[in-house]
């Protein structure tokens, strides 16, 4: 782990510790595939369609948005960040296993930030969901 990655992971842990989504969704920050990611654990409470045993779309969308917001705060000054809009695309059914989200901060301006998120399970090249959002920096 490089020093910038270690610092980002440390900041992410601080941000996640205060996020209301973390205890509910069980999110954690870690290094996976050499990237700092936010992880959604494969928990039974995240199942949507019981016949297909897949993660509920709303849970995935909440996960992507929370990961984007948390990583944005970890990259920034620690000021509050507020979602203006967020779009999630459900690329393929997500199994009830750990899901990882890597966040690309496209641009941080003075008041607005744009973020992209990709989420995968076993294969980092096969996303189960992607997201992009616009956030207000207050």
């Amino acid at each position: 782990m490089t020093q910038p990655e270690a610092l980002l992971l440390e900041r992410l842990a601080v941000v996640l510790a205060t996020s209301p989504a973390v205890p509910y969704l069980g999110l954690r920050g870690e290094i996976v595939d050499a990237r700092v990611v936010v992880t959604l654990p494969g928990l039974e409470q995240h199942v949507g369609d019981v016949s297909q045993r897949s993660v509920h779309g709303g849970v995935l969308a909440a996960f992507l948005e929370t990961a984007a917001l948390a990583m944005l705060q970890a990259h920034g000054s620690g000021d509050p960040v507020k979602a203006l809009s967020f779009t999630s695309a459900f690329v393929r059914p997500a199994q009830v296993v750990d899901t990882y989200a890597a966040v690309d901060v496209v641009r941080i301006g003075r008041r607005i930030a744009h973020v992209r998120v990709g989420a995968w399970q076993g294969d980092v090249d096969n996303f189960v969901a992607t997201g992009q959002g616009t956030f207000s920096l207050r």
Binding site: P20, P23, Y24, H56, G58, A62, E65, F86, S88
Partner: peptide
Amino acid sequence: ADLGAGGATARWADFVVPMLVDHACS
């Protein structure tokens, strides 16, 4: 309480919204 955020100025946590919207739309 576990769906809220904001401490003293309580508000709904953002994550509740996409969960609710996805289900209502379905």
